[in-house]
């Protein structure tokens, strides 16, 4: 098991290395003079010279790359040249908002997807299965922004039951300390317990629509894979053995089928994290959610390349990490790997 983890960790290194090269190239191979491209045609000669200096463009490429890599390893992800702030600091400040949204979306996707998949598998080839299939087809076919806008229109504009955008009612004047709204609600100094509860509930209410919009695609995929996995496992010989032993259907379902059916579902859940991070970029735009995603979109508009480059790098890092963790969890759940 330890050997497996070490092997997986070592396997991630070349990918990280490649990633750094790709993103290095992203800035340094911009067609034409990168400094001019970054600053625009109208920048003063002095600004351009400063930028060339900062980027180290006058050094040979390998030296530039080593400098860049050394910077990364020291946590220097560059500075935004809109406000000259270090990218990492701003990223970390905004990241909790994205994490909160992503986790909420994942809870929605897993919490609904797995029961739905099991339900469809139980009624395989009958109408409830068909209904779930149609639902998951729509799930993967509706873009996040279309679903987001539709949800806003139905629940915020027409029914007025949920807020349309932002993370929390601004009138509450919540202190953002951790920038996790649902945590900060409890940390807010000077509020009574009831006020804290109100703020928390308000935060949850703001999360509902974006989480559904963002979670719809993973929901569809998790539902499909759960259904397929349960159906496949239900036809295994060992399930027949379990029946022949006279176990109750409940026990067969919970122990013999689900413990095996889980395995592919876990892998797929891990793979969805990448999609969620990417989807968060769009969801945050739709719901005016002040996270990393909106930041990246603004940065593209402002041609703030370092922000774009670094955010992609960090997202990729997170994605790799999550998948590593999921693979290890998979190995843990699967004795055939654990005791290999």
């Amino acid at each position: 098991m330890t050997k497996y983890i070490v092997r997986r960790l070592l396997g991630a290194i070349p990918v990280l290395f490649g990633l750094s090269i790709v993103l290095f190239a992203f800035i340094h191979l911009i067609p034409g003079d990168p400094a001019t491209a970054i600053l625009g045609q109208h920048a003063t000669a002095q600004r351009i010279a400063e930028m060339r200096e900062y980027l180290g463009l006058d050094d040979p490429l390998p030296v530039q790359y080593v400098d860049y890599l050394a910077g990364l390893l020291q946590g220097d992800f560059g500075r935004s040249f809109i406000n000259n702030q270090p990218v990492l600091g701003e990223f970390l400040r905004r990241f909790p908002a994205t994490v909160e949204l992503t986790i909420a979306a994942m809870i929605f996707a897993v919490g609904v997807g797995i029961p739905l998949g099991r339900f469809a598998a139980r009624y395989a080839q009958r109408w409830p299965d068909g209904a779930v299939t149609v639902l998951s087809l729509l799930g993967i076919s509706i873009p996040v922004f279309v679903l987001g806008l539709t949800l806003q229109y139905i629940f915020a504009v027409q029914l007025k039951v949920l807020p349309a955008s932002s993370r929390i009612d601004a009138r509450l004047q919540l202190d953002l300390q951790t920038n996790f709204v649902l945590i900060d609600a409890w940390l807010h100094a000077g509020w009574t317990f009831d006020e804290k509860v109100d703020a928390f509930v308000d935060g949850v209410r703001h999360l509902v629509l974006p989480a559904i919009a963002l979670g719809s695609i993973p929901l569809a995929i998790i539902t499909r894979i759960t259904r397929a996995s349960v159906i496949e496992v239900a036809n295994e010989d060992y399930v027949r053995t379990a029946r022949a032993k006279g176990l109750t259907e409940r026990r067969i379902d919970g122990r013999h089928i689900m413990r095996n059916a889980w395995l592919p579902v876990v892998t797929v859940i891990g793979l969805q994290v990448g999609g969620l991070l990417a989807g968060a970029v769009i969801t945050e735009t739709v719901f005016a959610w002040n996270g990393v995603g909106r930041w990246i979109v603004d940065a593209i508009g402002n041609r703030d390349y370092f922000v774009v480059q670094s955010t992609i790098l960090i997202f990729a890092l997170i994605f790799l990490m999550v998948n590593l963790i999921v693979d290890i969890a998979y190995a843990f759940l699967n004795p055939r790997i654990r005791y290999a």
């Binding site: 490649g18 990633l19 790709v22 970029v281 774009v308 992609i312 997202f315 990729a316």
Partner: peptide, 12 residues
């Protein structure tokens, strides 16, 4: 490496 960058983010 390319697969490590989440979908539309790469396109962006």
């Amino acid at each position: 490496v390319l697969l490590a960058i989440p979908g539309i983010l790469l396109a962006i």
